[in-house]
Each structure stands twice: as C-alpha cells, then as structure tokens.
C-alpha cells in the first residue's frame, strides 16, 4: 500500500486549490469497487477519494474501526490491507480494488476471541477501548510477520498507535503473552 502517493495526491490538489478539504475530494462521482473484508467479498459504490475509514464505517457499517485524529497520527483507524497495517484515514478507497482487508470485527472467529484479544482482556490492556481496535490490528500484523517479537519490536510495531489510558505497559504485556501462547 502506498500511503505516500495518497498524501501527494492531496497535497497536489491542495496546492491547486488551497481551500480544498477532504470532503471536497470525496464528493466526486462514485465508482464501483470490489474488495474482501474479513473474508467476505464486498462491493461498494463510492467516490474514489472516499477514505477507506469512511467506506468501512458508513458503507459497510463496520464501526469497530475508529477515527481519533484523521491525519494518520493516532492509529485508531488501523486496518490490515493485504497483510500490512495501515491508517484507513489516509487511504482512499479507490486503492482497495481487489484488496484483502481485515478489521477488528474480523479477528474473533465464531465468537471465539483471537489469542491477542484474549490476552488483551486478561492483561487489562483495554481501558477506555477506543485505541483497542487499532492496537489489536497493529499487533496482529506484527505477529503475522514475526511470531516471537521482542519487547522492543513490540514497542516499535505499536509506536503509531496512541493510547492515553494504559501507559502501554499492559498492551505490551498482552502482545507478549499472545505471542508466547501461539
């Protein structure tokens, strides 16, 4: 996924028209898009520059993915696209054609929590819960790529996900626990 290209599209657009905001870009003509979300084929009709975040929350009513800042800093909107975690607030939905997307709703299977979710619950890694979906996604992407990460690797992997409640201690503990249980 190339986030840089998205940012450059916006910055070019903003240079041409300085008063332009996201919502103007989004208001262009719709297009049909097909992608897979949590293992299910989905088709949506959306303006190409609509944020993936909004497509998930509004078109697909998958509201587990959260918006904390809208500028790629807090990571609350993290989803996994083709194996990599990214900020869905910075990704235009037009780049999702044929993509394989995993959101927090896709982590538990048949009511059984993902080992990460179970560890988060047991370690007390979720407090207010608003960063939790993004944090779980970042952790899932890490463990999919690195089954036995060190504490430093965990810290690095979640550095783009802000949490204001926990001081990160129990989040790191939980990811470590899930990794060692796997």
């Amino acid at each position: 996924m190339c986030i840089v290209s998205v940012i450059s599209v916006i910055s070019v657009a903003k240079n041409v028209c300085p008063n332009l905001v996201w919502s103007d870009l989004e208001a262009k003509k719709s297009m049909k898009l097909n992608f897979r979300v949590n293992g299910v084929e989905r088709e949506i009709d959306a303006p190409p520059m609509k944020r993936l975040l909004d497509a998930l929350r509004e078109d697909l009513r998958l509201t587990g993915t959260k918006e904390g800042c809208g500028e790629g800093e807090c990571g609350a909107c993290s989803v996994i696209v083709d194996g990599e975690a990214l900020n869905s607030c910075l990704a235009p939905v037009c780049q999702m054609q044929n993509a394989n997307i995993i959101t927090v709703e896709g982590l538990a299977r048949d009511g059984k929590l993902d080992p990460l979710q179970q560890a988060f619950l047991e370690c007390g890694a979720a407090q207010c819960g608003i960063c939790t979906p993004g944090m779980l996604i970042a952790a899932r992407a890490l463990l999919d790529a690195n089954r036995r990460p060190s504490r430093d690797e965990i810290k690095e992997a979640i550095a783009g996900n802000l949490c204001r409640c926990t001081g990160y201690v129990k989040i790191i503990d939980a990811i470590e626990q899930a990794a060692s249980a796997a």
Binding site: T63, L121, G129
Partner: peptide
C-alpha cells in the same frame, strides 16, 4: 481479584458503540 473487565468483550471485538458509531 483481577476480575476481567465487565465490558471487555465488547471493547475487544469492536462491538462497543461509541457516540460516533
């Protein structure tokens, strides 16, 4: 005791409804 968070399941699965949801 370290009783598990009462609303933990909802928060971990994305089912918890915040106002913007």
């Amino acid at each position: 005791q370290n009783v598990l968070r009462k609303e933990g399941y909802e928060k971990l699965t994305g089912a918890a409804r915040y106002i913007d949801d």
